[in-house]
Design a protein around this nucleic acid. Sequence first.
DNA 1: CCAATGATTCTATAATTATCGAAATATAGG
DNA 2: CCTATATTTCGATAATTATAGAATCATTGG
Lengths: 114, 114
Amino acid sequence: MDGPKVIRALGALAQEHRLAAYRQLVQAGPDGMAAGALAEALGVPASSMSFHLAQLANAGLVVQRRQSRSIIYSADYGAMNALMSYMTENCCGGAQCSSGSACDSTPTEAKDAA
Amino acid sequence: MDGPKVIRALGALAQEHRLAAYRQLVQAGPDGMAAGALAEALGVPASSMSFHLAQLANAGLVVQRRQSRSIIYSADYGAMNALMSYMTENCCGGAQCSSGSACDSTPTEAKDAA
DNA sequence: CCAATGATTCTATAATTATCGAAATATAGG
DNA sequence: CCTATATTTCGATAATTATAGAATCATTGG
């Protein structure tokens, strides 16, 4: 995952409704959720939800598929893992690392930058 | 780390100059770097750099200390780990997880939310 | 083909964020 | 005390992002 893409991903998540939407999608799992269901769950107008979902999709964090009239969104775990890898590799910069939680230093490059 | 704080941290990192500054600080380690040195390293005017550093500080990602005339910034690894923990815990939502890289599921709460 | 449903795109507007020169503030040294 | 250095704050402006109603597009069922 390269710089610009990381910035887009971080920016996509750095917004109340989008972070909430993403969390909702993670919770929903592979089945995903329809745009309308998300809008209702978050209490956001459909057009606004669409705007936010487009940003998440543009950042590659979610994928969409049409199912009849609905468009189903689901979280792309690969993209999130790539983002986490980038952060992990760049939050300790070769130096020591606080060991406990995140920052477990995956070698150098994520194998899959979606 | 709570929602609003996560959003501020993500937003702080979701910008070219700030991500670059943070990376630079991580690389610099505990010694940190002076504001002016960062500005020069990134090729950004001092006042702009100050603006960005203020955002990183507001998000708790960096700390500052005065050393004579200079103000030295350094990365706060605790905050980054808290952010990573939040993401880790919320990118797999109790469901299964792709195992390999990030997402190694630290129990439930980070002990230190700076 | 027509009406109904689900979603996006358009459009306008508001709000936030970024940029950067100039002025102000703090520290050090002579 | 005065000057130089390091940084921040101010102020004005540009650019980006968010909001939401209205219009449009796609799909389904009768």
